[in-house]
Simulated scan of single mutants.
Amino acid sequence: MSKLPATITPEQLQQFDTDGYLIMRGLFSAQDIEALQQEFTMLHRNGPVERLFAPVSKEQAGGDILKEYPRFMHPHRVNELSRNYMIDPRVMDVLEDLFGEEPLAAQSMFYYKPPGARGQALHQDNFYLLIEPGTCIAAWTAVDPSDEENGGLFVVPKTSREAIQCPHEADPTVSFTTHEVVVPEGLQPVPVILEAGDVLFFNGNVIHGSYPNTSADRFRRSFICHYTGVSTTKISGYYNPLYTRDGQPLEIEKNPSGGPCGTEFAANSPH
Rank of each mutant, 00 (worst) to 15 (best):
T135F: 12
D88H: 15
R25S: 15
R83P: 00
T135Y: 11
I23Q: 05
G100I: 02
G26I: 01
F110L: 13
Q14D: 11
R45M: 09
P75S: 08
I65R: 06
R25N: 14
F53R: 02
S57E: 05
E102T: 14
G62Y: 01
Q14M: 02
A30G: 08
Y85N: 01
T7C: 05
P103K: 01
R25I: 03
L13K: 14
L52V: 01
R83M: 15
S108G: 03
L52A: 08
R83W: 00
V78M: 14
Y111V: 13
D19S: 08
E50G: 00
E11G: 01
L52M: 04
N79D: 15
E39Y: 04
E96K: 10
I65K: 13
Y85A: 03
Y85D: 01
G20C: 05
L104H: 09
P48C: 08
E59G: 08
H76R: 10
N84C: 05
D19Q: 15
P10L: 02
Q37W: 03
G134F: 07
D17R: 12
G63R: 09
S108F: 05
M24H: 11
V91T: 14
Y112S: 14
H123M: 07
E132L: 13
I65Y: 06
Y128D: 07
A6F: 01
D19N: 15
G62C: 08
E68L: 14
Y111H: 14
P10E: 15
E68S: 11
A54D: 06
H76A: 12
Y21Q: 03
E96T: 08
G119Q: 03
M86I: 04
E102Y: 00
D125G: 10
L43M: 15
E50T: 12
G62D: 05
F53N: 01
D93S: 09
A121S: 09
D32V: 11
P89T: 03
I23N: 06
H76L: 06
V91L: 15
L66D: 09
S108V: 05
F99G: 07
I65C: 10
N84F: 00
P70R: 04
A61V: 06
G20S: 08
I87E: 06
V78P: 06
L104E: 01
H44Y: 10
S57I: 08
F127E: 11
L95S: 03
D125N: 10
P55M: 04
M92I: 02
R83T: 06
T135K: 11
T41E: 15
Y69C: 10
D19K: 08
T18M: 09
G47Y: 10
F72C: 01
A121P: 00
P89E: 13
G63L: 07
N84Y: 01
Q14V: 04
D64C: 07
Y21L: 05
D64L: 04
P115R: 01
G119C: 12
E11V: 11
N79Q: 14
A106E: 03
F127K: 02
A54N: 13
P70K: 03
Y21I: 04
L95E: 00
F99A: 13
L27A: 12
L81E: 08
Q38T: 13
Y69N: 12
H123P: 08
E80D: 11
H44P: 02
A6C: 06
Q12D: 09
Q60K: 12
G62W: 05
T18I: 10
T9C: 09
L43T: 00
A54R: 05
E59K: 13
A35S: 13
L95C: 08
P114N: 14
I8R: 03
F127Q: 08
G26R: 14
